[in-house]
Each structure stands twice: as structure tokens, then as C-alpha cells.
Design a protein around this nucleic acid. Structure first.
Lengths: 393, 393
DNA sequence: ATCATATAGTAAACTGGTTAACAATTGCTA
DNA sequence: TAGCAATTGTTAACCAGTTTACTATATGAT
């Protein structure tokens, strides 16, 4: 039964050695040239990574059929404990690793998911997306899946590459981050043949599977905080008003102000486009229009940072003159000056959940996904009592 | 030659229609109910995404062999202009999309690359990595490649999953971000059978392909700035001293101080671990040990932010009392208070370059990669003239 | 002893491409 | 006009798995 006779190994070895020598010559300002040969010999001890053993090799050496090995690989109960162990041993002995292209080709699944990002410049550099993706990658890894990243550039969508992702069998499913109802291409992914989950948003008509943070709750928490601190003339910097979750926040903002006896005018609100720059511009606009504003609710932390920045530059002190509250709870904003009071969104957990549900959906274990995760307030330095009250003391 | 007779389409169609109807029923708080049916009918005009046409179908309908279609697909010059056009037309007519698992299985390449990140918590949420990855994803897309994300958790490496990535044919090559010489597993990927590029670092012994920023230049620029502002007692917050690029910065820091007549003691340096918290702690340590320090050079922006934060909390004003300078030029630190003077690292461009070179390497078009990208200083508010000089005026 | 059923494994078809070796046609030279 | 190469396309082997239908043996009930 002896060990598999791998063909032609010496030849390959010979082919590889000279380049190694060549490379050593490039070793211009080498720190420790003596290491050169060692490193290159190490991975080629004439055996380890070169053999390319396939399922037929394993079958032959284990004295079973290819089908049996395949079933062992997939924990098929049809295989007896005895053969299971025997084959497994041979698999390890030969260092066999199934080719996943072949697996994907003949099975139904690729074990790969995609994250689709909006076509923003340097979208990945945004910690908001980063947190979510971190959660996705972690969970995907645990569930034996790989993750790929795509950006939905206009051209990409026009060419139908988002559908191609499924049709060419790149992925089993897609997680869409940072999209809203304006992104109509999402409707292409509505059928059961295109498993997809919309992350941290929903479609108003409830047609797409989704998981998102409870922005209504978050907005309540933020408004409670500001109102309890005595603020009444509260401005808002929103973004993407076409997004249902954005509208949640805006709704609560308006409702709570009306309840508090102050009817909010549209001029109390400005669009900050989710960016620092936008937030800065919006804050300036608000404070110019209404110098009596004592607090601003911001749709995300970036805009809040921009708002603080621009208010400070214009001679207002935060929080003494104006309190600022954000949404997201990005890590580094705990270290800004002043540190930011904000609504914590469980973005990492959201990524984990989305990933889990998507895989279930791919496997047909769930029909419909629509889950909401709670938020909580993180009280820091950018908020304080409303000025009138503070002065009255 | 009539159109391909696809089997059993009506059946499938029937299976799919009812669910579509079902979903429409979920249309609870519909924004524009009239769109609902439109949306669902559009992708299912009885034909488009259901047929699953393969290369044999195309061949049959176009009246050529499968090999010919394959060659058309791959722009093989062996095919005449005439057939090329004819086959291409049929491909479009049938909406044929080659199955990339099959392509990968029979060809040499998968057209997929991986980005490997260090096992930090929420690594993706770090804008430093995000910038680089943005560049990688953009370029990969343009070059017809997909990108997957992996994290090098200890368990992952122990199980040899990094090699599995190649051996199971998940990817053609790997880009390693955020690693240094302590991560010995990288040596496993030294051979030409494992195309890999180390991004924004190098191995001291020059054995691994790499592209990185010119940290020496960056350090010179930062030190020039501080020295010209009159600072002489300059502290440093470093991180990962085992990293060659970190050592570049430390070297320049020491050399320039010696040149300026001030011999730096080790107590002028503290490890900030690349985090905000670490930077805060390190700054406190430095200022406690040497209250006369007037400037601090920080190994990255996060630590600089932490340093500013902790100095401010301890009653020091930045930059009046202490100037702070960082490395990275992360977007949002232009909006912090005070905004950060920093060395701009071309991280996005680095990602682009790394991706390009890796693909060339996979294709055997380059032997050895070792490129360096220049940095430049971004002067903002966190630096000012040294106090003694300012006072003397 | 006989038939039905469970259990364990196998052979062969199938997934959907690429590519090396071969064949047919055409153009050009000697 | 035979001989040769160049052009263009085809045949068939190959990549490396999964899965269905079938077979052989062991078990249990009648």
C-alpha cells in the first residue's frame, strides 16, 4: 500500500533553486545575507508543498473508492466509523486538501459571500463600514466561509456585474452595506435565487431581507438626553433623507420636539451628507440661521466631529454654548476634544448577525429576515446642560 | 439554427411566480405599492436569469465546437474575426456567463487575491488598513480580480490555513498588511509557489517581496518641521519596534536629535502600541518623566490623537505647550481639535501598487518586488514654535 | 428457510470549463 | 502541380470533486 509515488519532484526542485540564487544576488543592502539560503531551502525540503495530491490518490492509498473519500470529507453518515477513521488518517498522512473549485463546481455552494459597498471614495477607510465588516469577516471565518469585497460603482451595476457575482458562481450570497431606496438595483436581488441581506437599513416596502440597528430607539435616547439637559432649540444634521433609517431618526426628532412644545421648522435641519466636511458646513448653516440653537443632533459621528470642529472655529464652545450628540460610537471619537456623546450602534454585532442570517438564507433555513438590534447612549463630554439653565444657577 | 430550446423553463417559472406574489402581500407600509409588481416582474420576464446556459449550449447554437467558444472567451488569436463575432453575438443573445469555478479548475488562475490582516480586534475598522484596502479593491476590480479578506488569527496560522488558501485554490496570491518580522509565518510564503507581497513593511533580510512608504523620508520631514520650529527636547511615541519601518523612524529621530546637539535618552521614548489608549498612556509617561519636553513625534495618527487627548486632560495645551506630529494622515484627523500635523502616507496608492505588482507576480511577469513610495508633510494646528522661542518674542 | 429491510460501499455520470494534439482548408512557393 | 507552411477549427483528454443509482452483505421478522 506504500506511500504515494509522486512523480517528477526532483525536476521541479531543480527549476526552483536557481531563482532562489538569483534573488540572493539582488540582496543589495542586505541586513543579514547569511539567512538567504536558509529561508529558501526551508520551504522546499524536497517534499512538503509540491505533491498536489487529489482525491483519487487518497482513495487509491486508502483502498477505497473516490466516492467514499468524498463522503468522509463531507461527514456523510453512510460511512462506517471504521472506514471514516482509516480514510481520515490517510488524508492527513498525505496532507490532502480538497480543491474548492472542484467542490464548488459539483456541489451547490461556493462557501463564499460578498460584501457590497456603496461607490464612495475610499469606502473601506470609513470606520462605520469597517466595524460591520469586521463582524462579518469574523463570523464568516467561524462558519467556514470566505468573504469578498465589492464596490457598487455605477459602471459595475450597469454591466450587471452584481448579478454576475451569483451567475458566474463567485458567491452564494451578498451583504449590502450603506444602501437605501435610491439604489434601485437592489430590487434585482429580490428573488430567492439571489440570497441577499441589506445591512443597517431596510426597504420601506419590506420586500428585501434586512438587519439593522434600532434607529428609532437611538433617536429617543439621544433626544431624551438633550431634553433632560434642558435643551429646547435643538438643531439636526441629517443625511440621506431617502433612507428609511435616516427618516426614523428625523421622525423621532420632530415628534419629540413637538411634544416638548417646540415645533421644529425645516430650517432647523441641514443635510451633512454623512461626511466631516458636510457636518461642518451644516453646523455653520444652522448656527447662522438660528444663533439661539443650544444643541445639535447629528446623524452620525463623522458629521458630529465636523460640527464640533466648525463651531469651535467660529468661536462657539462645545458643549458650553452648543451640545453635540452623534450616532455610531466610532472608537476614536472617544479620544477627540471634547470626546463625543453618541448613540452606540452595535455595528460589529450587526455584521455578525447579518453574516449568520445570510448563510442560513443561502441554505434555505430561513425564508425572511428582518431583525433589529438595540442601541444605547454613551454619555461623554460633548453634551451639557442647556445654557439658560446653566446660567440661571 | 433557431434559439436554444431550454428545457423545463415553464415549470421553473411557475415555481417562482407565487413567492413573488407572496412577498407583495408583505407590503405593509408600502411607499409606492404600484411599484411592487413592476419590481418583481421585471427580473422574471419568463426568461432572463433562469436558463443557466453553459458553454456547450453556446457552441451548439453558434454551430461551432466548445473549444472555439472557449477560445473566443479568452481572446485567443487562433480564432478568425468572423467566428469571433458570430460566437460573441450568440453569447450575448443567450446571456451566457462562464462559470468561474470551472474556469479556475481547468486553468491556472482563480483571479482572486486575498488581503491578510493581523489578528487585531476589529482590524477593518482601522482607517489605516481601510485606506490601503480601498486602493487594493479598486485596482483589483479594474484588473478583473476579486478580493477576499482574511485575518491571521493564531489558530488560523497554526492550522496552516494561510497555505490552504493557495493549496485549495482559493486565491492566486496574498497581500499581507500590518505584519513585521515577528510574524514568522510569513516565511512560509517565501517561495515562488506562494505569490505574496508584504504591504507597508519589509523584512530586514530582503527576502520577501514588498512595497512600503518611505518612513525614513517621512521621519526626516517630521523632524525637520519640529527642529525648524525650534524644538530640541523632542519625545517620541513609537510602536512595534520589531518592525523595520518603525525602526526607520526611530533611527532618523535619534540621528537628527544627535545632529541637533541633543542626545536622546531612551526615557524620551515610549511605546504606544499603535492605539489611541496606548498613545495617551505613553504621552502621560513622557511628560511626567520629562516635563520640559516641547514636542512629541508619534508613530501614527491614532497615538497622536491619544497623546493630544491625554496632554489636554492633564492641563497641557497643544500646541502651545507641546507640539504633536503624527504619521498616516487619516481623513478625520483634519477635523479633530486641534487638527493634526502629520506625515502623509500614500496608503491608497500603496494599495493600488501592491495589487498591481502582486498580479504581475502571479503571472510571472516580475521576479522580485521592492518598491518605496514617498511621503510628505501636512502642516496643521497641532504644531507650533517651541515655547522658549515663542516666549522670547 | 425465506423474504424484506438496513447498512456500507462502489461505479459512473455529472459539474463546466481549458488546452494539447491533430485535421482540414487555403495560400504561396518551387 | 506537387509540396509546404500558415490559418482556423475540432476532438478528446483533463481539471477534481459530488451525487445518484446500483450492488453486496448483514440483520431481523415470519
Amino acid at each position: 500500500m506504500g506511500i504515494l509515488a509522486v512523480a517528477a519532484k526532483p525536476k521541479i526542485s531543480k527549476q526552483l533553486d536557481p531563482p532562489a540564487g538569483d534573488l540572493a544576488m539582488h540582496d543589495i543592502d542586505a541586513v543579514s545575507p547569511r539567512n538567504v539560503t536558509v529561508r529558501f531551502d526551508a520551504p522546499l525540503p524536497d517534499d512538503k508543498p509540491l505533491e498536489k495530491v487529489n482525491i483519487r490518490d487518497v482513495a487509491r492509498e486508502a483502498g477505497v473508492s473516490v466516492a467514499t473519500v468524498s463522503m468522509v470529507l463531507n461527514d456523510n453518515p453512510r460511512i462506517s466509523r471504521g472506514t471514516q477513521v482509516r480514510v481520515q488518517k490517510m488524508i492527513e498522512r498525505l496532507g490532502y486538501r480538497p480543491n474548492r473549485l472542484a467542490q464548488g463546481l459539483s456541489s451547490k455552494y461556493t462557501q463564499v459571500l460578498a460584501v457590497m459597498l456603496p461607490p464612495l471614495r475610499h469606502a473601506l477607510a470609513d470606520a462605520y463600514f469597517g466595524e460591520i465588516i469586521s463582524g462579518i469577516v469574523d463570523r464568516a471565518g467561524k462558519l467556514g466561509h470566505k468573504m469578498m469585497i465589492e464596490q457598487a460603482k455605477p459602471q459595475f451595476i450597469k454591466e450587471g456585474k452584481h448579478l454576475e457575482l451569483y451567475e458566474r458562481r463567485f458567491v452564494d450570497g451578498i451583504l449590502c452595506l450603506g444602501f437605501n431606496e435610491k439604489h434601485t438595483f437592489l430590487a434585482d436581488l429580490a428573488g430567492p435565487q439571489y440570497p441577499m441581506i441589506l445591512v443597517d437599513n431596510r426597504f420601506g416596502d419590506q420586500l428585501l431581507d434586512c438587519v439593522h440597528c434600532d434607529y428609532r430607539l437611538g433617536a429617543e435616547q439621544a433626544m431624551n438626553c438633550l431634553l433632560q439637559l434642558g435643551h429646547r432649540t435643538i438643531g439636526m444634521i441629517y443625511a440621506a433623507p431617502e433612507s428609511p433609517t435616516s427618516r426614523d431618526v428625523m421622525d423621532v426628532y420632530k415628534t419629540r420636539l413637538v411634544e416638548a412644545g417646540t415645533a421644529p421648522a425645516d430650517s432647523w435641519m441641514a443635510d451633512g451628507m454623512f461626511t466631516d466636511e458636510g457636518g461642518a458646513a451644516a453646523a455653520q448653516e444652522l448656527i447662522t440661521r438660528h444663533p439661539n440653537i443650544t444643541a445639535i443632533l447629528c446623524g452620525n459621528d463623522k458629521m458630529a466631529l465636523g460640527a464640533i470642529r466648525s463651531l469651535t472655529l467660529h468661536g462657539y464652545q462645545v458643549p458650553r454654548d452648543v451640545s453635540i450628540i452623534g450616532f455610531d460610537d466610532l472608537q476614536h471619537l472617544a479620544f477627540s476634544n471634547p470626546s463625543l456623546t453618541t448613540v452606540h450602534l452595535p455595528l460589529y454585532e450587526l455584521g455578525v448577525l447579518a453574516c449568520e442570517r445570510l448563510i442560513e438564507k443561502v441554505r434555505g433555513k430561513v425564508e425572511r429576515v428582518a431583525e433589529v438590534l438595540p442601541t444605547h447612549l454613551v454619555l461623554r463630554e460633548s453634551t451639557s446642560m442647556a445654557r439658560r439653565l446653566a446660567d440661571a444657577r
